[in-house]
Design a protein around this nucleic acid. Sequence first.
DNA 1: ATAATAAAAGATAATAAGGTCTTTTTATTT
DNA 2: AAATAAAAAGACCTTATTATCTTTTATTAT
Lengths: 149, 149
Amino acid sequence: MLSRASKYAILSTLYLAEHASKEKKMSVKKIADAIDVPSPFLAKLFQQLVHAKIISSVKGPNGGFYITKKNGDKTVCDIIENIDGLHKLNECFLGLNECDGENPCPVHFIVEPFKKSILGKFRDKSILEFSKEVADNGRFLTLKHLDLD
Amino acid sequence: MLSRASKYAILSTLYLAEHASKEKKMSVKKIADAIDVPSPFLAKLFQQLVHAKIISSVKGPNGGFYITKKNGDKTVCDIIENIDGLHKLNECFLGLNECDGENPCPVHFIVEPFKKSILGKFRDKSILEFSKEVADNGRFLTLKHLDLD
DNA sequence: ATAATAAAAGATAATAAGGTCTTTTTATTT
DNA sequence: AAATAAAAAGACCTTATTATCTTTTATTAT
Ligand code: FES
Ligand code: FES
């Protein structure tokens, strides 16, 4: 449904929201290591996100990426829109050209509410709210295999 | 979530279930044309499905593919399992290595019930039942752009 | 000013997914 | 028996995605 690129971008942005700030910027390398994402690839993705004003960046020593209040109002939806395009969230589960009630596939009426629900969450919650939720629940959104024992 | 290959395989098999029988076998070409799927690609997919005894085939003149009662008891789940592998239906929506309640991502509790529900449908309904449902509702499961006016 | 640091930009490479083509085998019809 | 039709098998090509590398530019600390 989402490309790996979008997933990387989402996880990394949430990580950034939780761990960086204007005062404590973070380099791609650090973030990439933390959540186990290929760092040159992430660099590309972050470029796009800066362009879309979803995150901020400063070059040079002590530079790096961070998230301002204003950035934080952006949504996961905005990330997806900029990396994959929103249509990726609205495709028919079985690949029909149109996903709607007019000529629905056999699972449409299961898929439709799910899509509505997830799109809603991605659109209505800001990135900061998402990241707060993650932190409050003590979650680690990393691709690294963690041994949590 | 599902690869295009799986989607093609599912749509084509449902088409086959509705339109072919031991007495009226169908060639790849015909099916591919009907639902607008690349025919050599479909041929490959059908090979795998025959191997997995999900559909049947006979070579030579008036040969082709068809579905027996026994085939018809197979499920969409079986198709997915043979083309993509079932794990494709159980991945984390945001790409985490494990999708479970232990370290869930922010959308896990929306995704989880959806996955359960769709997996249930794919596992409990036979291909014949699915295809009957499609026929009864007068649906066309094709990738061709239909002008339904 | 200079050196160092980190992002931006763009070119390039590797891999995987999707798609096609050719030859072989098997069954059917004439 | 010969011709033909269709699937099986496998090699091959194309495109998109994922990933990396190199150069340039901006910023900061010395
Ligand atoms: S038509 Fe297939 S999911 Fe909506
Ligand atoms: S952990 Fe992300 S969907 Fe289950």
